[in-house]
């Protein structure tokens, strides 16, 4: 019993962690390009889930299409947000920009409440098979989907940034906006791409999570908080760090609930965040250390 319980906790932790990692990657995409903490990231996830449900249950599209279609839609939402609210503010304070994303997240949540009401919605699991037994524990097949999708998305983004022209241009913008601009890269366009990609990653997370999480209009907020925690833990802006941070938060939560207290499981994750900030403030995987010169 003891071992199988541990295996179960770890599997649950990895599944949750994969979701947080996807959230963290979404935060990173916008952050590295623009320096903005995008508070609408959780709403991207919510939209992904709700749109998938809408496509499947109300438009009666096939499940695979219902999961993929929202990605494009939310990418458009992300790009739209950049064009309508972020671009006009490009000369403002960074904090003002961050507050604009807060306003947008409120508006998106309100809109979702109008469109879908306050209810949660179900979506069938992607593959209709029995739970998989593993070393005395059992895993929901959808959890395997979550882990797989997170891994594929992470790899795809890494390849995108390393080998594609757009990806490399975005990397350049993130590193030195002025230099990138001088090299002929259109920084604003790259920023728009960052928002679109963040929307896409959010929608992927939302759709793959929907059969497990039963999305409602307000599902984004708490996910975003934990995703942000994961991003900081891993070192904000660092995508390998996002993966590590996500898994860490997921495992802390699950093992914390299993061995310490289910009531305080979230507090444990945040406590570790505080400790990491004191000991290694740049995050687990970031190398640059900015100590005060004084």
């Amino acid at each position: 019993m003891e071992w199988s319980a541990l295996v179960q906790y770890v599997l649950t932790g990895i599944t949750q962690g994969a979701i947080y990692a996807l959230l963290a990657v979404g935060f990173n995409l916008v952050y590295s390009a623009t320096g903005i903490i995008n508070f609408a990231q959780g709403e991207f996830v919510m939209l992904g889930g709700m749109l998938a449900v809408t496509c499947y249950s109300f438009l009666h599209l096939p499940l695979w299409l219902s999961a993929i279609l929202p990605i494009g839609v939310v990418m458009l939402v992300g790009a739209g947000i950049h064009q309508l609210a972020i671009r006009p503010l490009r000369h403002a304070h960074l904090v003002t920009l961050i507050m604009a994303t807060v306003g947008l997240s409120v508006a998106l949540r309100g809109l979702a409440k109008v469109l879908w009401g306050a209810d949660s919605y179900p979506l069938p699991a992607f593959s209709n098979v029995d739970p998989v037994a593993l070393a005395g524990a059992s895993v929901d097949p959808q959890s395997l989907w979550v882990m797989g999708v997170a891994a594929v998305t992470g790899t795809a983004l890494t390849l995108f940034f390393r080998y594609s022209l757009t990806g490399r241009a975005m990397t350049a913008c993130a590193a030195r906006p002025l230099a990138a601009c001088l090299a002929g890269i259109r920084v604003e366009r790259m920023n728009m791409w960052a928002f679109a990609l963040a929307g896409g990653v959010g929608a992927i997370a939302g759709a793959v999570l929907a059969p497990i999480a039963l999305p409602s209009f307000d599902v984004g907020t708490s996910l975003a908080l934990k995703g942000f925690c994961a991003a900081i833990l891993g070192g904000i802006g660092n995508n390998a760090g996002a993966l590590l941070g996500g898994l860490l938060v997921g495992l802390l939560e699950s093992l914390g609930a299993g061995y310490i207290s289910s009531g305080y499981k979230d507090a444990i994750a945040f406590l570790v965040l505080l400790i990491v900030l004191v000991l290694r403030p740049q995050g687990l995987l970031n190398v640059t250390m900015r100590r005060d010169e004084s």
Binding site: V102, G103, S105, L108, L111
Partner: peptide, 9 residues
Amino acid sequence: TVAYGVILV
């Protein structure tokens, strides 16, 4: 709520 967010922005 929508109006609140939009006015804020």
